[in-house]
Design a protein around this nucleic acid. Structure first.
Lengths: 192, 192
DNA sequence: TTCAGGTGAGACAAAGATGTCTCATTCGGT
DNA sequence: ACCGAATGAGACATCTTTGTCTCACCTGAA
């Protein structure tokens, strides 16, 4: 028996398919399974062999997004050092997952059903904890709630991903722009 | 012949239907015409009488969004006074159009077709001009491009609208949170 | 009351998407 | 070269959505 990196004999890269699907679906949420398959460069039948249907595809996207976001949180070591630097590290670490997040942030449909993935709650909790820590340490202002900062973080990651995808901003500036705006805002400041 | 406020004998409020549709579609982009009709409290047939199809509905949404956004730009008098205060006024004036913008920001599908509404270019131009003016006047930092500030503005309006709709933040805090984050960021500053 | 215009509900066919299947082909390992 | 596994293309039935139509009902104005 032969094995690839992921333990299966195969040619389609599940991860790559999901990334492509995320990019397409964030641009056109009503895209059909056929369009998703074509965008990923595979046949509709093959797509169906890997994901039972549209719902299963979105669920897989959700799962992958949560895993990558949690990996980013781990990699950024958000519990360490000043909160603002932790946010900077987190933005940078979130860049690979940005297209995924851009899609899922808008797919609020996921939060209607009965069994919503508990991963989102974990993510939110860790992110809120980070902003709360920053407030308690005096790094972040206290008149903006951690919940809102959390939302803004998601929103800016999504906006950044779209802006880069559309070529309105350079990919290299991704994390700088997001972190700077989130932390310092647009107004010119006397400090730093 | 009888006339209502809008010059037609009628009972359905076109504007209200569009607002409801925007709210629903921003939460569930794949909603059917029937779901949109139910959400608006009208029959599917009636919805069809007013909007020939899903495409026409989205186009009407787009047009309404552009009109309201331009009205907000006018009402905020963004050419007057300090740029940061102009942004504050603009955010406040944009609040009524927020659910509309939240939907259309994510409906990138609109920017694929051949005939995309030129209203977006007008909007972008005015917004970019505002941020550029702020930079030239020394109010805004120059290391964040006007194009990115423009994107971030849209993104934060959308995030704010969702956060309010989901009850994660109070509706009263809408414009304060957005304007403060966009202008000042999360980091505590020595000024002000 | 009368009446015209608007509406909701349902029926209906057409169009599109989905899920499943078969078969020829290609690719990687042996 | 061989062979098994996976793929792409296409056919197919089914389900959903869409667009259109009819008809009964309601409402406001005369």
């Amino acid at each position: 028996m032969s094995h690839s990196v992921y333990g299966r004999l195969m040619s389609v890269d599940r991860t790559q398919v999901l990334r492509t699907a995320a990019t397409l679906l964030s641009r056109k949420a009503t895209a059909t399974m056929d369009e998703v398959a074509r965008a990923a460069g595979i046949g509709r039948a093959t797509l169906h062999r890997h994901f039972a249907g549209r719902d299963a595809l979105v669920r897989a996207l959700e799962q992958m997004c949560i895993e990558e976001a949690e990996a980013a949180l781990d990699a950024a070591r958000i519990e360490e050092g000043p909160a603002d630097e932790a946010v900077r590290r987190l933005v940078a670490a979130s860049e690979p997952a940005a297209p995924l997040l851009a899609f899922l942030v808008t797919e609020n449909q996921l939060f209607e059903g009965d069994g919503q993935n508990e991963g989102w709650a974990r993510l939110d909790a860790r992110l809120v904890a980070l902003f709360r820590r920053g407030q308690e340490e005096g790094t972040f202002r206290i008149d903006l709630s951690p919940a809102w900062l959390c939302e803004a973080f998601y929103g800016l990651i999504g906006s950044g991903a779209w802006a880069v995808a559309d070529g309105r901003v350079a990919a290299n500036d991704f994390s700088y722009m997001i972190a700077e705006l989130l932390l310092g805002g647009a107004r010119r400041s006397v400090e730093k």
